[in-house]
């Protein structure tokens, strides 16, 4: 989804992964590339439509190749900011839309309401570093003084992205090749009730290094009422030293802000 040059490392294993997940009763969606410029990227995006599983579009290039009315989902990098756009995508075949992470709760509620009327489910970025920007330039390659076309996979040692600090040592962002992520991990633990009330039907959890299965389980416990929001937050902090969380976007504040900043 971020960089087509990474694909050869795992491409062959995608069919097996799909099989394992489907056998376990999971719905699988394949995500399209976020910024498509090269010929092979266009070809790859066109071929995605023939994979036989749900496609999540992250750029309209993918839409150009999907048959009319074929169901698809929409990723967080497609700009769905209002009801007209949501309705248009719904009429085109969208069944689930993960909203842009920067949207505040009142917009989310308005969109979720329009989604309900159009048979579309709304998803919100629930956990993990937030995708903030995508570029034609690779910042990892730039950092290593290499051209992008000969990057020698400068990003491979930073699976969570490489921390970007201010000159005062304040953690701020993370570079992930052509993508820029937030330093903080978004966490909707304390917003779940408000999001559910707004009509949001799912949370997206983005994997970071660590016991991701456990994190998924904790969010399941939260949604099923076996764990409270603050308990989940405490559990996340207990499992990861120095974890910085954020939920400012949903609250209409700075994206980096965290509503329980005093939580240990």
């Amino acid at each position: 989804m971020v960089c087509s040059k990474r694909l050869p490392f795992f491409q062959d294993r995608i069919p097996d992964a799909i099989g394992v997940l489907q056998a376990a009763g999971k719905t699988v969606a394949l995500s399209s590339l976020a910024l498509v410029t090269l010929k092979r990227e266009r070809k790859m995006t066109a071929e995605l439509a023939e994979m036989g599983v749900e496609i999540e579009i992250n750029d309209l290039t993918a839409l150009a190749h999907l048959p009319p009315k074929a169901p698809f989902s929409v990723g967080p990098l497609v700009n769905v900011y209002n009801e007209s756009t949501l309705r248009w995508l719904g009429a085109r075949g969208a069944v689930r839309i993960c909203l842009p992470p920067e949207l505040p709760l009142d917009s989310i509620a308005t969109l979720a309401s329009a989604a309900r009327d159009n048979g579309v489910e709304v998803e919100v970025w629930g956990y993990g570093r937030v995708p903030l920007a995508i570029s034609g330039r690779c910042y990892h390659a730039r950092l290593h003084a290499r051209p992008k076309d000969n990057c020698q996979f400068a990003c491979e040692d930073d699976p969570d992205g490489l921390s970007v600090l201010t000159r005062e040592g304040q953690p701020f962002l993370a570079m992930n090749g052509v993508q820029t992520l937030s330093d903080s991990y978004a966490c909707m633990a304390l917003q779940v009730d408000a999001l559910a009330q707004a009509g949001v039907s799912s949370l997206r959890l983005s994997p970071q290094t660590g016991d991701f299965t456990k994190i998924c389980g904790s969010f399941r416990d939260l949604l099923d009422g076996r764990l409270s929001g603050p308990e989940l937050v405490n559990r996340l902090h207990a499992d990861t030293d120095g974890l910085r969380l954020s939920d400012g976007f949903v609250r209409g504040a700075r994206g980096a802000d965290w509503s329980a900043a005093a939580t240990p």
């Binding site: 920067e102 570029s135 700075r254």
Partner: peptide, 20 residues
Amino acid sequence: VMAEGRCSLSSYATGKSPNM
């Protein structure tokens, strides 16, 4: 530097973004 219309760096730091 970023692809236009696809950048939330500003709102991450300030709450205000080009898109919104």
